[in-house]
Design a protein around this nucleic acid. Sequence first.
RNA 1: CUCCGUGUAGCGCAGCCUGGUAGCGCACUACCUUGGGGUGGUAGGGGUCGCGAGUUCAAAUCUCGCCACGGAGACCA
Length: 564
Amino acid sequence: MKTSRFFIATQKEVPAEAEIVSHRLMLRASMIRRLSAGIYTWLPIGFRVMKKVERIVREEMNRAGALEMLMPVVQPGELWQQSHRWDEYGPELLRLKDRHERDYVIQPTSEEVITELARGELKSYRRLPIHLYHIQTKFRDERRPRFGVMRSREFIMKDGYSFHADYADLEREYRNMYDTYTRIFKRLGLKFRAVAADTGAIGGTGSHEFHVLADSGEDAIAFSPQSDYAANVELAEAVAPGTRGVPREEMKKVPTPDKRTCEEVAALLKIDLKKTVKSVLVMHEGELHMLLVRGDHQLNEIKAQKTIGAFRFAPEKEIESSLGKAGYIGPVGAKGVKVVADRRVALMSDFVCGANEAGCHLTGVNWGRDLPEPQVADIRNVVEGDPSPDGKGKLEIVRGIEVGHIFQLRTKYSEAMGAKFLDASGAEKPFEMGCYGIGVTRIVAAAIEQGHDARGIIFPAPIAPFEVCIVPIGYQKNAAVREATDKLYDELAKSGVDVLLDDREERPGVLFADMDLIGVPHRVVLGERGLAAGNAEYKARRDEKGSDVPLASIGAHLKERLAQ
RNA sequence: CUCCGUGUAGCGCAGCCUGGUAGCGCACUACCUUGGGGUGGUAGGGGUCGCGAGUUCAAAUCUCGCCACGGAGACCA
């Protein structure tokens, strides 16, 4: 490909709306253009990258025995009513009506269609197992689309669905997919980690998320370097080994005027933040609950909801009408309030909390003596240094971008939609199902979050828009440069290298800047100066400096680099 | 959903407070210049100032409504 005939529309300036580096660089590199909120056009450069990601995903899925197919983007609402997702999904599901006023949805995933297909086609256990997948446009009407294609409304995903006669076979395929995903992300050249995820209401033993590691990631992942334990921070169990200390202090009321937060109180009293307890008042079905976590910990709403059920935070008014001024409430003498303490809090002694009196806190508080033993539950986020739930080592926390998710659906859809087969004994059974997703377009953004510098994108070679670029200096004017350039270009193109020749009549600086920006991993510069000495210059995108390579062997040199 | 902010050329912005001929930079077109890290110059083209109402002799500018976009927000006693 020659740049003069290609679509390069790089820019120095970038729309102010682009917040994260991948979004900025994708716009600047002319990979994408925004059409509407969360909806993007993929320009040729971006399209090439996306297709390379797709290809690797496709090759590995096929290798793993899955069969590619294609399901419609527009799906009848009726199927979604059968699976109950019509009601469960909420406003993220884009619904529309056709001219006959019939309901349709734009698919966010395809469980309904695939289950409907299986219901009609897979009548016998002899046809099982089978794994079907497609790579297709999805739509989720996100509340707040942002970060470019990282969190867009329209996106491309590979979603696969497997059908099994029994759970053991589903587990086998699940492991197969775990291994396949691991291979895919390795081939993509990304740093990633598989983490245990929430199995939610569906249960079953299996759900893993695959995260590309990047500081800008939206998810925090807790893992133990001493074992293979890894989980989303929101789900990681916070354990609290040890026993409660014996009380040494008397409970005392101390004045803490204008000190409402644990941090302020700890600073005023000159005590460790770990001696304080945060009291959070919530309302669940008309009943007030007080949730207690240690001053330096954070409440985990998901865990708390699992413990007491759905709740909302109590507004200041409700706090004042029940216990007193917000900022000074606490569990001691909290009448009409159910107290739930985090495991860690339940082990505390001589702690500090609000006194339910404006401007006052209590010190030296102890369970059993000053207030009744509380209900105890895991209701906080884990923090760095917490013991690993599997008992091996201490947790570390890194940030990640979720790019893959594998899930054991079990019989949720097959039962809801009556998708059954006959087993060997002639009995009718619902399929055991698995589903497996990979965010193709999100991977492109994630790769950029992981690979960039001040000059632009640094793509892993397997997904770069081009493998090699040739930058001639004076291509339009210097016959020797032109000749050497054309010769090398033809040689590389003929041997199947994905090569880009920058033949634009621009200053060298412009060419260099553009090639760096779009992230081509290997670059050859041919100029009068070097050619006079019989040399080409080779530079890898990651390197600061290039090196001279004899012109005669530059082709071989490149092929060697590409093979690495 | 709530609060805040912003809508002026493809992009980044100024002008608005204090109403009076719509501007700058990038990009684009032509020519000259330059040629190893976004060269310098000359001349151009491109605008319903988000939409609608109101005030006024006169509205990008003031008022009201709407729309779009962006940011923040259950953070926590």
